[in-house]
Computed example of a mutant assay.
Amino acid sequence: MDMASIGIFIFAVIYITAGNGGFVNVQCKTENMGQYGQQSLLECAVKTSQGVTDVVIRTVSWKKEGVDEPLLVFHKGQTIKQPRCSFAEPSWNNRNMNVSLHITNTAVEDQGVYTCVVMTDRGGETSETRLKVTAKYSKPAIIAEPEKLTQSTGGTLVCNSVGGYPKGEIRWFGELNEDWTKSAKMEVKKTESGLFELSSELTLLPGSTYSMYTCAVFNTSGGKEDETTFEVPDGQDASGRSGKEPRKQSAQITKIVAPLVVIGSLIVGLLVVMVFVYGRRSRRDHQEVCASESDAEKGGHCEMDKEYYDTLAWGDVNAPNS
């Protein structure tokens, strides 16, 4: 007789004989939580009426809803079990009232409703319990498209988080914690293992004023599991240098040019003074020469020279041609 046949036989016997007395009660925890890839425990225990002692368990059967073959069967002193399933206590025997089920390497497919059937020498009973499986999502990773995305050029930020269960959600937040999730587009993929992969794209328009964005992954209960922050550069040129470098270079150039401008102004001013002084001196010397001349005919010539030197000294645009 195979395990499926044994299970059907046990269930039939228990349901027929379970009404033989109310001395035995199987109490199972309503809901159990299991972590993907870890060990899970479905807690059930046999309770007896007051004064009832020395109870001997004859049969135990664990079955999952939707699966025909039992996961674990104890019958006639023998235990038959499926891989990854066993009694919670390794040294379990027919006088141990702890009939909890232990599942190793919990998978998504293990989630569901389980039935525990117990038959003792004082009667039997059936009870149900539920297993919920969860898996934590990986730390979000953000990729910029294009790679050299800046506030001035805009682009797309892609956030990915994988390996979670049940289906979660990716949310976006700005530097002031404002919610940008509605502006993003999220995709959900289910892997062969039943876990989920989440991907969300947030488009940044050119001229964005925000310097950082945070991508956070939330589980199905609305709890935040992890987050990653991406800093957006304020600008980059074609060579990939940040926008801060040109400003720094400009400041350095200004520091060099400013003294040169001052020096140049001083030189020009000095030249103007020299021309002015030279013009006045030349006019004075020429006047002295004219005063010493006794010939009256040279008076007109001196007057003309006087006007000429006045022009040199004061820059008269209407100076007479020599």
Rank of each mutant, 00 (worst) to 15 (best):
I253L: 08
I253N: 06
T254W: 02
T254P: 00
K255G: 08
K255P: 02
K255D: 06
I256N: 05
V257H: 03
V257R: 09
P259S: 04
P259C: 08
P259D: 02
P259L: 04
P259Q: 09
L260A: 14
V261Q: 03
V261W: 02
V262E: 13
V262D: 03
V262M: 01
I263P: 05
I263T: 15
G264Y: 02
L266P: 05
V268I: 15
V268W: 04
V268F: 11
V268N: 03
G269I: 09
G269E: 01
G269M: 10
L270H: 03
L270S: 15
L271G: 06
L271Q: 10
L271W: 08
L271D: 08
V273F: 12
V273E: 06
V273H: 02
V273W: 02
M274P: 00
M274N: 05
F276A: 13
F276I: 12
F276S: 11
F276N: 07
V277F: 07
V277Q: 10
V277D: 11
Y278K: 13
Y278F: 14
Y278W: 14
G279I: 04
R280D: 10
R281I: 11
R281Y: 12
S282H: 06
S282E: 11
R283A: 15
R283M: 14
R283Q: 15
R283P: 10
R283T: 02
R283H: 14
R284D: 13
R284S: 15
D285A: 15
D285C: 00
H286N: 13
H286A: 12
Q287S: 08
Q287E: 04
Q287Y: 05
Q287I: 09
E288K: 14
V289K: 11
V289P: 05
C290E: 01
C290N: 06
A291T: 10
A291Q: 11
A291C: 03
A291P: 01
A291S: 06
S292F: 01
E293Y: 00
E293N: 13
S294M: 06
S294Y: 00
A296S: 13
A296R: 10
A296E: 00
A296P: 15
E297D: 04
K298A: 07
K298M: 07
G300R: 10
G300Q: 11
H301Q: 10
H301I: 07
C302A: 05
C302L: 05
C302V: 03
E303P: 02
